[in-house]
Design a protein around this nucleic acid. Structure first.
Length: 279
DNA sequence: AGGGGAACCCGTACGC
DNA sequence: TGCGTACGGGTTCCCC
């Protein structure tokens, strides 16, 4: 489930491998994954272009083409960008889930693999992407993401703080895994109204978000089920998960050990927390 | 504007 | 063993 750290991992690895590569052709096996362009418009807009660089915004992989147009990949749950050729072996079991392929120079290919095919690939002009990105919230790993910025994003909402953290218009890149992990580390109950947090809690939550996501980026993200980096790497942050996927196991706070609770009262999503440590 | 719900998709788990 | 069904999960869009 690529959230900010997994998407950042994808973008970094891809940038290292395909910045400067020329797209020789495009194969669209599943037109349904495309957004903002049909298969013909996508192929004609991308074929012949050079990939200038690859970067991340929110949970989006941005393949920036020379000329300014951008291929925007939103992997959702089971999407991945997998390289093949020039010494990179493609995992053959994934072949049947390839939905779109960019043929690159040097005999290489960049495949969009998506098992459930709920992820999307869009072709946007520079202006269209600027408009789209402007609606997204601030980047939590940016140097100017302070406790005061977080407080501003949470202000005025009676919604559960966890739901607001995951709202991409409020804050970019946070999904279910890192919302659960950061709230536990900050000792804030996920069900609390967003506007009810104190200044001390804003500081703790800001620090926890930055700490957990930066640590995960350093470890190549979290592989829970289907996440793979572009050359098949799995994310090692999975070993640092303290609440996500651990309902019923003891809370890791020293001296606590209370079984972690799970409910779906926040936006119908699996929420795991310690009813003793998180207030 | 804010909030609620449906649609998108298919592997996996589970019941019979 | 095989078939049918429920489920999950982020984002978008539609409606109230």
């Amino acid at each position: 489930m690529p959230e900010l750290p997994e998407t950042e991992t994808i973008a970094r690895v891809l940038d290292r491998h395909v910045a400067g590569a020329r797209v020789l052709g495009v194969e669209v096996a599943r037109p349904g994954v495309l957004r903002e362009a049909d298969a013909a418009a996508f192929a004609s807009g991308v074929s012949g272009a050079t990939i200038a660089r690859v970067w991340r915004r929110a949970k989006l992989v941005v393949l920036e083409l020379d000329g300014g147009a951008k291929v925007i990949v939103q992997p959702r749950f089971t999407g991945a960008l997998l390289l093949e050729g020039a010494g990179v072996a493609f995992p053959e079991a994934e072949r049947r889930f390839v939905r779109l392929t960019l043929r690159l120079d040097g005999g290489r290919a960049l495949h969009y693999r998506d098992i459930r095919a709920l992820g999307t690939v869009a072709l946007m002009s520079a202006a269209r992407f600027a408009e789209y990105a402007a609606a997204l919230g601030p980047e939590p790993l940016a140097a100017d993401f302070t406790a005061a910025v977080l407080a501003g994003r949470l202000a005025g909402s009676r919604q559960a703080v966890k739901k607001v953290l995951m709202d991409q218009r409020r804050l970019a890149g946070v999904g279910n895994i890192y919302a659960n992990e950061a709230l536990w580390q900050a000792r804030v109950a996920p069900q609390r109204p967003a506007a009810s947090l104190t200044r001390a809690e804003h500081r703790r939550l800001r620090d926890a978000l930055v700490d957990r996501m930066a640590r995960s980026v350093a470890l190549g993200g979290t592989t829970f089920e289907n996440f793979l980096g572009p050359t098949g790497e799995t994310g090692r942050f999975v070993h640092e998960l303290r609440v996500y996927g651990r309902a019923g196991q003891p809370c890791a706070t020293p001296g606590c050990g209370r079984p972690l609770a799970e409910d779906r009262t926040v936006d119908g999503r699996a929420t795991v927390f310690c009813a003793r440590c998180q207030k």
